[in-house]
Design a binder for these strands. Structure first.
Lengths: 338, 338
DNA sequence: CTGAAAGCGCTAACAA
DNA sequence: TTGTTAGCGCTTTCAG
């Protein structure tokens, strides 16, 4: 069933030119309603499908947006992606998604591939280790819109979309302090990335504000892989004076810290109060429920998608919407109760 | 910075024909090592990047694989996708990912778009409601490899990759019975889909095997959206005789049932033993830890990817590997302990 | 081993 | 309103 049928076939069959067919199919205004209908009907009944390769080649655009994320299988990222996919799909854009797996090298490769694939725009959330941005400036040089979300970097004319991680870090820490914590350990992800670096800054600012001196020992920078939980636990057990508050840069890691701490005989929140970050579903499942910072992933995806698509359509003025900051919300649950 | 440079530019610069350039770049055997090197060097230094649109048009293939999943933001699916992405990326294939959001209509649209995008192959996990498969037979008709994973359907010559849901359902139920349950409620997803239908069949077979008669009342078919938890709880509270075992078709839903049941004063596992399905991370976080069925998502993705890519390369004989069944593993935790 | 030239299917500038 | 035609950049057959 089904040879591939082209606009030439249609043209021949209907005794019109290929151009007329093309124009009709693209709803070009200068074609009479009559012929347009005739052609569209014929196209439908013959099962015509436009060949995107040819259209892309001719137009030099692909209706495709590239996305690079650190990993697909995290609740936050897949939620963001769901948002992006939703808006992209609604307006007829395809998404090519690839993951850097937190490797700067793979990120470079991914970017190259997407560039070669002719994506009309690129959205990226950076890997832990990325320090060089040549793989991204390529896009800028070629005027391909580039947008950062969540794990961002300031590159000229590139919109970013994120939350105010510094403020959120501050609020989280302040909350712990208000609950009576005086010796708060902060578990951060890679400090090269804004999200972790800013949360840490917020943490420090809160300490200062409340007259608590920051100790280097109270900062642990890990890659937040769960295999690193034990060393954190050890760190806590060996801390002197005792740690009485824990501010972890993501919920998954926080939850597993709680599990281990409980095994070690700690009472949460009596002995140690714990704050997470992300409002991941697990935060509501752990007992005690984890206090956390709500982080609107889906919305972030939707806005990122709208922003880039708006830009592609020339609708949004890039300058004017160069940074979107989403609202975060402190969510107080059992794990930090006095 | 950077005009787009083509093989013609290279050809001119080096006084060879475009054909020679093309062949060199593709490492065609019939080109002398010398000229090949010369050309490749020049290409590199001039920053040549092949235009995929043109290559695709000329070759009628895209090096792109389409994927349709019910939703991106589920732990299981994003894990599968991570596996697919890994292998696809390793061999230079791009992934275009779209989500049906459990809607048969959107699935049809997605399939059309992917078809039009010229994907070389399609991998799909079906939406709840899909009953008609015309949108997929299109692919088969055009000899575009089609592979089902997890939520599969038997279409001629389409490989499927899944676990033995019937056996897994049986084992889960048998375990509950062995733990003393005699009145087990089964919460199933849409029974149109093999995964839920087969688990249910396994459940029934286990009951029969142990001489327990199945009651229609003990089957609840829901879409497993968490908003449906309350009605399940109500169902449990109103059941007579009392429900003493709960077999839920996925962990997320199971976990939230446990949370609610605890609120209602039930002791888990004393009053009701609960089995989940998936081995989702939350299953280890809930207290009591949830017994579940391990379900190798990442591996499923990897194998699915390898299978389809092997097929695209003509390496794997499709007939011979028409169905891959992965091993599942019963994981016994606290929620079902006697 | 290399070149000439004909597509691949669609778009768009220019003509009519 | 419609047609002609020249690309878009790469691949590939056929000649040399």
């Amino acid at each position: 069933m089904g040879k591939k049928i082209t606009i030439y076939d249609l043209a021949k069959k209907l005794n019109v030119s290929p151009a007329t067919v093309s124009r009709s199919l693209n709803d070009h205004p200068s074609i009479s309603k009559k012929t347009k209908e005739k052609i569209i009907d014929a196209a439908k009944s013959l099962g015509y499908r436009t060949n995107k390769f040819a259209a892309n080649l001719s137009q030099q655009k692909s209706n495709t947006i590239g996305v690079i994320v650190p990993r697909l299988n995290s609740n936050f990222m897949s939620t963001v992606l769901a948002g992006i996919e939703k808006v992209a799909n609604d307006v007829g854009y395809n998404l090519i998604i690839s993951q850097s797996l937190e490797s700067a090298e793979k990120e470079v490769l991914n970017a190259k591939t997407l560039y070669d694939s002719g994506v009309d725009a690129l959205m990226i959330s950076l890997a832990y280790g990325t320090e060089n941005f040549d793989h991204l400036t390529t896009f800028i040089d070629r005027k391909i819109p580039l947008l950062f979300f969540d794990r961002v970097f300031d590159l000229p004319n590139c919109p970013t979309i994120l939350i105010d991680n510094e403020a959120a870090g501050y609020e989280a820490t302040e909350h712990l302090i208000n609950q009576g914590c005086t010796n708060i350990l902060h578990i951060a992800g890679g400090l090269k990335r804004n999200v972790y670096c800013q949360r840490f800054k917020g943490y420090k600012r809160a300490l200062e504000k409340y007259g608590i001196t920051f100790k280097e020992d109270n900062l642990v920078e890990v890659d937040l892989d769960l295999s690193r939980v034990p060393e954190v636990i050890t760190h806590i057990k060996e801390s002197d004076p005792k740690i009485d508050g824990l501010f972890v840069a993501n919920d998954t890691f926080a939850v597993h810290c709680i599990k281990e701490l409980k095994k070690e005989g700690y009472n949460i929140p009596q002995d140690i109060k714990v704050m997470g970050f992300n409002n991941d579903p697990v935060s509501e499942v752990i007992s005690p429920n984890l206090s956390t910072m709500d982080y609107p992933g889906y919305k972030m995806g939707v806005l990122a998608g709208q922003s880039i698509i708006g830009h592609l359509n020339g609708a949004i003025n890039l300058q004017s919407a160069n940074q979107i900051t989403l609202r975060h919300t402190l969510i107080i649950r059992e794990s930090t109760q006095k």
